[in-house]
Simulated scan of single mutants.
Amino acid sequence: MSDVSLQEGAYETGMGDYFALLKPRVMSLVVFTALVGLLVAPGPVHPFIGFVGILCIAVGAGASGALNMWWDADIDARMKRTVGRPIPSGRVAPGEALGLGLALSGFSIVLLALATNFLAAFLLAFTIFFYAVVYSMWLKRATPQNIVIGGAAGAFPPMIGWAVATGTVSIESALMFALIFMWTPPHFWALALFVKSDYGRAGVPMLTETHGRDITRRHVLIYTLLLVPVALGLGLTSIGGPIYMTIAVVMNVWFLKGAYDIWRRTDADCEADKHKVEIGVFKVSLYYLFLHFGALLAEAALRPYGFGGW
């Protein structure tokens, strides 16, 4: 981490700057998947307990974002996409970001333990540690497989939501975790194939930088092939059903076809059509996760009326 500091008196930090440290766009996905994990779990959950659980998961995710921005300030300062973030732009001091991340981490973990159960709190603590330390401080700068292993941090929220409701880990929550974990690499690499990044200049060993686009295309197909059985397998569990399975079949055929098309392409093809296929696959990936988890939610909502589930 570099010494990125504020110019004293140059800027008065506002609440919006601190909020930006929490990566609110990422937090929205975390909240949605955690909420689905909570609502599809068996057994009733008191609304207040559920609210506190989701709040703690959201705050924990924000804490991870702040710690990540604190550590990655040197990288962010060298990349066009991130140079405007609060620390490299001089709107927030690095020490303030570190303090905020640590304070929110402690608050969210302790409150979740007191309001729900220790398993949920442990999973949240491990998620924050994994993202801030294992991914940000180690994997991101050490291996082109960083996005693969680091994707585990974004996959834990539905498992935590399930633990809030049940106090357990189950095959259902494990498969929800696996769905996000296996979706992350092809989603990210599809984007990396058509976005001109400056990861190389920033010293981050992303796959497109270290192994080239042909290898990246192959990895997109491989991880999509691994994703399909996970998605379909989730539909066969107690939280699946015909609604989910219909969505899963359609979306996985669509996604797999796109990954196959990417694998067959060359750099010349991409230049000729301005990455039309890669852009299309990335857009499909955006809908992919939302529709799968939305279908699980629909199954849970309709099950009491005899429509959801098998």
Rank of each mutant, 00 (worst) to 15 (best):
S2K: 10
V4A: 06
Q7R: 12
Q7K: 14
Q7V: 15
E12D: 14
G14H: 11
G14M: 04
M15H: 13
G16P: 09
Y18P: 06
Y18M: 09
L21I: 08
K23A: 01
V26F: 01
M27P: 00
M27A: 12
S28Q: 07
F32L: 04
F32T: 01
F32C: 02
V36D: 07
V36K: 08
G37A: 10
L39Y: 05
A41M: 12
A41Y: 14
V45Y: 09
F48E: 03
I49T: 02
G50Q: 02
G53K: 11
G65R: 04
G65Y: 01
A66E: 06
L67A: 09
W71Y: 13
A73Y: 07
D76M: 03
A77N: 02
V83T: 04
G84A: 14
R85E: 07
P86T: 06
P86R: 04
P88S: 12
S89Y: 03
G90Q: 02
G90S: 11
R91S: 13
G95K: 15
L98C: 10
L102R: 08
L102S: 04
S108H: 09
S108C: 05
S108Q: 04
V110K: 02
V110W: 03
L111A: 11
L111Q: 13
T127G: 11
F129Q: 01
Y135Q: 10
S136C: 13
M137L: 14
A142D: 10
Q145C: 08
Q145V: 13
Q145K: 13
I149Q: 04
A155V: 08
F156T: 00
P158L: 03
I160S: 04
I160H: 05
I160K: 01
A163W: 09
T166P: 00
V169Y: 10
S170F: 13
E172D: 14
A174G: 12
A174K: 13
L175G: 07
T184R: 09
P185C: 10
H187C: 02
A192T: 14
L193R: 03
F194V: 14
K196C: 06
G200A: 10
R201C: 03
P205C: 08
T208C: 13
H211G: 14
R213Y: 10
D214S: 05
I215R: 12
V220A: 07
V220P: 04
P229C: 09
V230W: 04
L232N: 05
S238D: 15
I239A: 10
I239C: 06
T246V: 03
A248R: 10
V250E: 08
N252Y: 09
W263A: 08
R265I: 03
T266L: 11
A268W: 01
H275M: 07
G280W: 00
V281C: 06
V281L: 01
V281K: 01
F282R: 00
F282W: 01
F282M: 00
L286M: 00
L289T: 00
F293A: 02
F293T: 02
A295K: 00
L296R: 04
L297S: 02
A298M: 15
E299K: 04
A300Q: 05
L302C: 03
Y305L: 08
G308Q: 12
